[in-house]
């Protein structure tokens, strides 16, 4: 399963592929935290376009990154969630904390203003 990370200005963009369950959530958490802890990046876009499944372990990973960035006055965004993933994000209430966008470019454009 791929995890692609790139940086645009002060935004870390993470593209996740596949299923976000307990196994994957731990790996993703480690990779993102390593990047965030070793840089001045304060903003994170999670691109979920290629995520086909999410459970409470995946949701917990997202919430944890939100709390981490929030404590540093950073912002977090979710982009491109498919309907079946979006449904679970709404069920969890994460959408009340983290703004969801259609795609990552929308967030980058918004940040550039």
């Amino acid at each position: 399963m791929e995890l692609e990370m790139r940086q645009v200005r002060n935004i870390l963009i993470v593209r996740i592929e596949g299923e976000m369950d307990m196994l994957r959530a731990d790996q993703i958490r480690e990779d993102i935290d390593k990047k965030l802890d070793n840089s001045e990046i304060r903003n994170l876009i999670l691109n979920l376009e290629k995520v086909t499944f999410i459970d409470s372990s995946g949701l917990g990973m997202i919430l944890g990154r939100y709390k981490k960035l929030n404590s540093k006055n950073g912002r977090m965004y979710i982009a491109g969630a498919r309907p079946q993933v979006e449904k679970i994000l709404y069920f969890s209430g994460i959408n009340k904390l983290i703004t969801m966008y259609r795609n990552e470019q929308d967030v980058i454009n918004l940040q550039g203003r």
Binding site: A25, R29, D55, S56, S57, L59, G60, M61, L63, G64, F91, S92
Partner: peptide
Amino acid sequence: SEPSRMGLGFSFMKS
């Protein structure tokens, strides 16, 4: 009892 999983497991099962 595990903050990293949001406590939603049984909520999903019930729903």
